[in-house]
Amino acid sequence: MTDRTTDRACTVVRPGALTTVQDLGRPGLAHLGVPRSGALDTPAHLLANRLVGNPPDAATLETTLTGCALRAHAPLTAVITGAHCPVTLDGRPAPWGAPFTVPAGAVLDAGPALRGVRAYVALSGGIARPPVLGSRSTDLLSGLGPAPLAPGDVLPLGAPTAPPAPADAVPQPAPPAELVLPLHLGPRDDWLTPDAPHTLATGHYRVSADSNRVGLRTQGPALTRARDGELPSEPMVTGAVQVPPDGLPVVFLADHPTTGGYPVVGVVPERALAAAAQATPGTPLRFVPTHPGR
């Protein structure tokens, strides 16, 4: 008979549209063609870990729009951060944004997002799927790390290392009504016509439904190339805004390719990318371009 108190795991009851295991990713391996990956809303991931007493690099679950549900094998502490959503424990209301205890056998359900896109579910001890190249993150571009959650999956949990934080709700930024992204122009803004910064600032872009962990895609006016052809492949950074042949800017997120041949008009600083990760399709989007060193 299994010792229920040491069976630190949970079973996936409802995986939702797309729920992945995420930590802080695989920095430092881009020269091998390995994307950084990791939680898209890093502050929400870090807060979730802090509230259940996990170290910052413990793995959480990142849901997409529809949440997920898990059955605990042993008592554990859980918290939901990021996208606002109804939370239930065996069908009864449970707090969002504050840690609570999940008894053995109980079902924790993080419901569909009311605002935002990605909720983070942290469980005390962290998700203990085997790390790949030092990280448990699912990288959807290159297929590294655990597969997205499926019904019936058993997720092993690590041993808790610290008690949960005091159970006060912590203020979190609301998902943006308008997504405003600072943009440091360059290195390839000269591949576009000189009106590109003005168009990015005033073009009334919207977040496209085709956005994913690789990139935030946009709808709006196409930017015009000042020259034809492709650049020789060059390295990419997270937050780079690439302009593919259709002229619609793509903001590279955590699972972006490490190299690319389309011009990068500018770079969105990392601190602005959490809001980008929480912007639902259709959200108005405005870039605020600045020239570096001016």
Binding site: H184, G186, P187, E234, P235, V237, G239, A240, V264, G266, V267, V268, P269, E270, P292, G293
Partner: peptide, 9 residues
């Protein structure tokens, strides 16, 4: 070339 706030190309 500057490449955002924390990188050079």
């Amino acid at each position: 070339l500057p490449f955002g706030e924390r990188a050079l190309l």
